[in-house]
């Protein structure tokens, strides 16, 4: 059976819930201490595609910070897609995320990505407006409201990204 793998990064501001969002949906191979030591943690996510192939997303969970250092950017090298995570209760993290996107595109060119508006379970504290989401959608950005706590739309985020990466829907 044909096996394909893709390098996928999760980036976003500090404490937007990058790690906790995906951790329930991936194969956790390494402990989180790598994030604080090496600055990156690798997980994998397997998906079956409708054409029969299997896709393994190798997920580079890159330690978040307000601004990427050169080392962190180095981890992005060769990435074929990414999940851009925003804390929906902290509006400023959206701006940071968009800035990150711009920086990545500047350095590595346009890559498929999905923007995750996380912490949707804290909808009372939600600070990102629908208009802003609409505006992003209009730019062609795929935006998903996710919740690490409930798991809402996380799987879908991976599936959407998989389709962007391979051109084939996940089964």
């Amino acid at each position: 059976m044909t096996r394909i793998s893709r390098k996928v990064c999760i980036i976003g501001d500090f404490a937007v819930g990058k790690t906790s969002t995906v951790t329930r949906f991936v194969n956790n191979v390494f402990s989180e201490k790598y994030l604080t030591t090496v600055g990156v943690k690798i997980d994998t996510k397997d998906l079956e595609l409708v054409d029969g192939r299997s896709l393994r997303m190798v997920i580079w969970d890159i330690a978040g910070s307000d601004r990427f250092s050169s080392a962190e950017f180095a981890y992005m090298r060769g990435a074929q897609g990414y999940l851009l995570v925003v804390d929906g209760t902290r509006k400023e993290t959206l701006a940071s995320a968009l800035a990150l996107r711009a920086a990545v595109e500047e350095r590595y060119g346009a890559l498929p990505f999905v923007l995750l508006l996380n912490k949707y379970d804290l909808v009372d504290e939600w600070s990102v407006s629908d208009a802003e989401i609409e505006a992003l959608n209009k730019q062609g950005v795929l935006v998903l409201c996710t919740s690490a706590m409930t798991g809402k739309c996380v799987e879908k985020a991976f599936r959407d990204l998989a389709k962007s990466l391979t051109g084939v829907s996940a089964a």
């Binding site: 990156v40 690798i42 994998t44 190798v58 580079w60």
Partner: peptide
Amino acid sequence: QDADAVSAMFTAIQDF
């Protein structure tokens, strides 16, 4: 371990 994860992590550590 998961060979894909190990490969990626090894690359990261190599870079690190």
